[in-house]
Design a binder for these strands. Structure first.
Lengths: 239, 239
DNA sequence: CGCCATATTGATCGGGGTCAACGGCTGTGG
DNA sequence: CCACAGCCGTTGACCCCGATCAATATGGCG
């Protein structure tokens, strides 16, 4: 059993890739870097010279307003190239910070260029991945714009569960690692910390979940899904 | 003066394209369709067989919750391929509706495939475009998640102004077409119609804007920008 | 001229923000 | 081994932005 097969290969395992394409993916990262929890990997205003592939851990995109309010715009999991855009858009318009300790692989823009010019199928797969990210952004817009706190949290939990499931990071019995503090949930959902706390208690009281960091167990998947109006199709899973 | 040069050419005019590449873009649309105002072009659940390029008019992406609340996730302007994702993601996870009467060009998925496989620079330009869309989604998340009504509306107006400016659709004196009803602004910003109305009056009272549909004049650009905490860099303009 | 969509205004209410303490766990240094 | 610091979660009190309900203008159009 090898220590670390590139999680991109894992992600694209349903694609009929040639040996050559697989080799390109396998060798894409020229460097691996470790980060601690709650550190910035890329900052707003940076002009990165490479793209980053998340190998292990959880990161978030975020931005801060002049008043010091923070909005988290997405969570990213292993297998995500979380700043593919830096290849095409010179300057970062937001920051990337870790939630947990992370292992990150760097893919040079030159490698990306080779993929664009010589491996159209890989290109298309990566493009698809960025379009899936965009689909998640859109769902978050609906969630934050039109749902109340209870619904928002339920929706987020469903989404995280399904995304972890697709990369094989769920445990039996609808249990997942839940590395987020209540402050982070608040920043992701446009709520206040205090209100997140109270709403989590409500979800527990209703017997939908058991949350004891760093572990979340979904007791009643159907009820949680329905509370969050969650329809997983946007994540492109069969479910 | 030709009636209609493809607005994609306009959009990519800063790129050093070959004659061949220009020809591909010029001939990309195999059909042109007209729509009236407030009609659906694509519906959630559709499996489109082509991508659509907006030639004239304004459309929005939106989704409705089971309670009948509507969230608009973006506005799109001429030159936007507003469902590029349909090429890669089979099923639409949201709907596209017109705001004004529109002219829409269809690009077959087969043409898209040719571009992916034979015109990497065009591919990259289109990819960039979808990444810019994603950047706008993210800004909207910050706007809806962390700003109050006054700020949200100011930010939206700044964004629409700059986006129209980049495609040459502004008039002198900071004036633009403003085809949106107050209900649409509300749905885009996660607010209620009534509150949008009152906040618009506040913006007028403060002498930031003159809004008399279908025309918006920005009286004090700096003040509006600052009210909306607007930094246009995410739109990739020099400004 | 009447209809219908859109804009406006008033009154009331509630979800969730803010402020302020306090409790509990963990890691660290004396 | 204990004391203290710091982060995180919890709780209570109070209040306001913005939702909701309900009319009333206004204006374009057939």
């Amino acid at each position: 059993m090898q220590t670390q097969s590139n999680p991109l290969l894992m992600k694209f395992k349903h694609l009929p890739l040639t040996a050559e394409e697989k080799t390109v993916l396998q060798g894409a990262c020229f460097r691996t870097v470790h980060f601690g929890a709650r550190e910035d990997i890329v900052r707003q205003g940076d002009k990165p010279k490479e793209c980053n592939l998340l190998l292990e851990g959880v990161v978030c995109r975020y931005e801060e307003t002049p008043e010091g309010k923070r909005q988290i715009m997405s969570f990213q999991f292993p297998g995500d190239i979380f700043d593919a855009q830096s290849f095409v858009l010179e300057t970062m318009d937001h920051s990337i910070g870790t939630i947990t300790p992370c292992k990150v692989g760097a893919i040079s823009h030159q490698t990306m260029d080779e993929i664009v010019h010589h491996y159209p199928r890989l290109m298309k797969a990566i493009w698809k991945d960025t379009l899936l990210d965009a689909a998640v952004f859109r769902k978050w817009l609906v969630n934050i714009g039109r749902r109340d706190a209870y619904q928002r949290i339920a929706h987020l939990m469903c989404e995280v569960f399904i995304r972890l499931e697709t990369v094989g990071l769920t445990r039996d019995d609808h249990t997942i690692d839940w590395p987020f503090t209540q402050a982070e949930i608040a920043d992701a959902l446009g709520l206040s910390l205090v209100h997140v706390n109270r709403t989590l208690q409500e979800l527990r009281r209703e017997k939908l979940i058991v949350l004891r960091n760093p572990t979340l167990t979904i007791l009643d998947w159907e009820a949680l899904k329905s509370a969050g109006q969650f329809a997983p199709n946007y994540l492109q899973v069969a479910a």
